[in-house]
Amino acid sequence: MSRLRPLVVAMGLLALWQLLCWTSGVPPFLLPDPLRVARTLWARLDLVAGHALTTALEILLGLAIGTALGAGSALLLAASRRAREWVLPVLVVSQVLPVFALAPLLVLWLGYGLPSKVAMAVLVIYFPVTAAFHDGLRRTPEGWLDLARVMDARPAAILWRVRVPAALPAFASGLRVAAAVAPIGAVVGEWVGSSSGLGYLMLHANARMQTDLLFASLFVLCLMALLLWYGVDRLLRRLVAWPSEPLHPA
């Protein structure tokens, strides 16, 4: 039953929406009813699916590249004091900058195609991943480090065998945030300038008062974002299945 609860809530909300449209007589170009959206989605599935594929590719590429860059940066910051001193301030300043304001520039530099959208997704993912992982790497419980030192561990081994695994729960939190914001990055990139993708389709439909198509695209986008977050969360739960702190003696 608890697994069905979100479905029941969603169905209830859709029913309410349908009822509202029927009773209020609001014109469909302002607010199409769910049944109409479903019919449109079904009728134009080819079109929507094609654009969804573009967006999905942007999101996944952005997530992969952003995660790799973020993880690499966090490791560099953890391993080298000099890197910390020089790069950390730059990193913080870069995050104060509204990343979305860079979208037009990215389109200018990287063109209308895939690269500018992937770059946008990478930009929004990079910081949460770097910050979370670096934070985890800094907070290795002292006891583990003491133990490693008494064991005459090599510094590189302390990083790879103690600090990195100890930081994985924090890294996983960063990845969950990244999975949630990656679709935003990709769609914002598409809004600024593109010729395909769900963001493009939504703008296109909006301009032509095809509000039902806009809603259909939005629905598919939400579904993709949900699936992505859920998939990432499930994967991380399986891979990082331990408490983040040392166990306290019972």
């Binding site: 583990w144 003491d146 133990l147 064991m151 695994p165 331990w242 166990l247 306290h248 003696p249």
Partner: peptide, 14 residues
């Protein structure tokens, strides 16, 4: 030539 044992077990959970 030294080994160390602390109050908490310090076992690595992974």
């Amino acid at each position: 030539r030294i080994a160390w044992m602390a109050q908490s077990d310090l076992l690595l959970p992974w």
